[in-house]
Nucleic acid binder design. Structure first.
Lengths: 157, 157
DNA sequence: GAGTTTAGTTAGCTTGGCTAAGTAATCAGG
DNA sequence: CCTGATTACTTAGCCAAGCTAACTAAACTC
């Protein structure tokens, strides 16, 4: 029994790796979330703002889908963020049903500061690793990123 | 310029890896969260139940801390879960201020089913990887798990 | 141009978050 | 042991965040 993944051993190993990766992601984000208290924003607002700043989302409906929330909920979240001066929402002149949404400079800098706090904490942890450990994490990142951003709607062919 | 991490290059690389790992974790869980709709439970209830089932948490206060929520909030979440027959809360006979909390069989099986759905989706993604890619992820897991579960309250010595 | 679809909003409800203040049990001195 | 402090949780009452149902308005269809 070697550590090489043979065709037979693969499915069980995949389930095991999936279980561990899932759990690790939960614990990692739970831990980093502590830093968000400093932002003064609620979780849902911070998350919506983050999608607008980093994800390049432009309309209210897109934002609702991205956040897995219904349009009325997002409508109010956006209203709150606009009121707080962190976002702007403008009617699209080409399709006046649509709300074009973007972050203000204030919103962007507030969000960047928050993300910097999270990343800083994680960076400190990574800096403590042995060289081999660090390389292992860095080497897995391309693949983890691909899985993380995979299209959720694919059907098995 | 090699891919080996030298003592000089390390800090910048660590920040880069932290940024990417953070973002990947967010996207991964956002994607897997879609599966939770099938459970019929709200996010906060599912999360609290999960901590009780997997984390071995025993008291209401511990649970509130684990979920980064105030005691009154957890009080109501637990009340709802008890009412739904997914948890039991009993006064500790040795210290009658505390609520000993545990999942019922129904709660445990509901949660296991939900986690199975999430893990199944992730497993399918992992099974599609090339052998080398899979090994890279599996090899990084020990380290990622250690970072994910690190004590959040450590002070730099 | 009448009907349909799409994008958001409004109304009104439940749940989930908080603080402030209360109750009850335990602990620590004197 | 009794008095005061601390701890664990609950109650009350507020606002934010989730939902569905029903509405408005714009854009498509033909």
């Amino acid at each position: 029994m070697t550590s090489q993944a043979g065709a037979r051993a693969r499915p069980a190993q995949a389930a095991d790796v999936a279980t561990r990766l899932h759990s690790a992601a939960i614990h990692l984000l739970r831990r980093l979330r502590i830093e968000d208290q400093a932002s003064g924003l609620s979780g849902p607002r911070l998350s919506a703002l983050s999608v607008v700043v980093f994800g390049g989302v432009t309309t209210l409906g897109d934002l609702a889908r991205a956040e897995q929330v219904r349009p009325p909920t997002m409508s109010r979240l956006v209203a709150g963020l606009v009121h707080a001066g962190l976002m702007e929402a403008v009617r699209d002149p080409d399709d006046r049903r649509v709300q074009r949404i973007r972050a203000t400079a204030k919103g962007r800098s507030l969000l960047e500061a928050g993300r910097a706090r999270r990343v800083r904490r994680l960076t400190r942890d990574l800096e403590r690793l042995a060289a081999g450990e660090f390389t292992a994490v860095a080497g897995a990142l391309d693949v983890i990123e691909r899985i993380a951003r995979a299209n959720p709607n694919h059907t098995t062919p």
